[in-house]
Design a protein around this nucleic acid. Structure first.
Lengths: 230, 230
DNA sequence: CTGCAAAAGATTGTTGACAATAAACAGTAA
DNA sequence: TTACTGTTTATTGTCAACAATCTTTTGCAG
């Protein structure tokens, strides 16, 4: 199989509108997301360059972007490593996420459209199906999309990019709460309450529910917000 | 004057513990902070490389980091430009900052030390002096340090890095609220209330005060939170 | 066998050169 | 003049080679 990003046959026809660097960054993000690159792994520049069919320059540039977004960390003269998230850091990220999601809810509530409410409700009912059947691998991506949608609908562009970044970072932390018994159902009932509050255009209520929703996950793993961990 | 980062005379003696890339990124951040590079300016790689006495590689890597943190944006084949922040985006950043500072206050309140309270009070009283004398150029950096200190004392590392990033980004937006008549005094009275709430270890009150403090600036420029701008 | 030191190898840091693209300019036709 | 087109120039995108640094292996003394 050919792993190179650029198909040479197509190279002639495509007018490239994107730099290799950004293509590579997305590819690396994907590899980390999917688990092809695991926390703690070192990214060998030569190997990656060969695998993706480019030189080391773009690889290095992509890594600097990933560093800033917290997905990797760089040690001088040693290389770049997929970050490992300690319990302590994961707990911190939960706290941040709670605040960001609360803000998203507060911003969205007063201006949400009927169409958006309908879309969120659709997701909730799909998640209900998945929860009934105990299909975590169906529930999980829906859950992600649900939260993403609320942030996106909030209309605050930077909030979306920061949230995405924090979410990716949290993904490096493997322990999940959703696979605890009955957790999907409880989580989804919270989703329903959130959508109800949004539909009622109640910003304060939505914000509170979003915050609680995130912090509940935190509590299951680490105890209440602000608790020192590890 | 010599603008190069690396003094060749020192180069031999220092065992470099940091890559050029990170030095350059800090230098560029400084140049943007100080206004040597203004919003909308293009960063000419050759010129920067010559000025800093390095090659283009590290420059490009540094720029990718800055891109991710929102200080510059890159257009393929055209270059990297210091970002210009629209009113709309500035308003969005205020909303985010309010949420982040509220979180910082909430986290810090229950665990603040006497020493930290004293340090914050010292800053407040220094700001009071500056406000009395109408010295904005003294007040402003103290104001920055005050807010930074609270986030730092909160102990959430990622919160600090995100806050710093958001703060730098906001700095690209030139209009300030503090130079409005009487604004320094009002602002500082809010600072005092925040420190009092912190000293009382009242997380909710602190969070609310921090949020209001930031949103008041937003309102002066753009109207209340969530208001569409531009 | 263990511990240390030096050499060999692998990997990152940095550079200068070349290719691809966009901007600036000049010349021509309407 | 203005619009268009081809040419020149400036700048970015990419690459491959070299230098600096770290890691591993090898060899030797105890």
């Amino acid at each position: 199989m050919d792993d190179t990003i650029l198909d040479p046959a197509l190279g002639l026809r495509i007018r490239r509108t994107e730099s290799l660097t950004s293509l590579i960054r997305r590819e690396l993000e994907r590899m980390i997301e999917v688990g092809e690159l695991k926390a703690g792994d070192r990214l060998n520049e030569n190997a990656l360059a060969a695998k993706l069919g480019v030189s080391r320059g773009p690889i290095r540039e992509a890594c600097r972007g990933l560093e800033q977004s917290g997905l990797v960390h760089v040690i001088v003269n040693r290389g770049v490593f997929v970050r490992e998230i300690s319990n302590h850091e994961a707990a911190e990220l939960y706290d941040i996420r709670a605040a960001l999601y609360a803000l998203a809810g507060r911003l969205l509530a007063p201006k949400i459209t009927k169409k958006q409410v309908a879309e969120l409700r659709r997701m909730v009912s799909q998640m209900e199906d998945a929860a009934d059947k105990g299909e975590l691998n169906v529930f999980y991506p829906l859950n992600v999309r649900f939260h993403e949608a609320i942030v996106q609908f909030s209309g605050n562009g930077r909030l979306l990019s920061i949230s995405t970044s924090v979410h990716r970072e949290m993904h490096l932390f493997r322990r999940r709460t959703l696979d605890m018994p009955g957790r999907m159902k409880i989580s989804n009932s919270e989703h329903r309450a959130i959508v109800d509050a949004l539909a009622a255009k109640d910003g304060n209520a939505t914000a509170q529910l979003m915050e609680d929703h995130v912090l509940k996950s935190r509590e299951l793993l680490f105890g209440p917000m602000g608790t020192p961990v590890d």
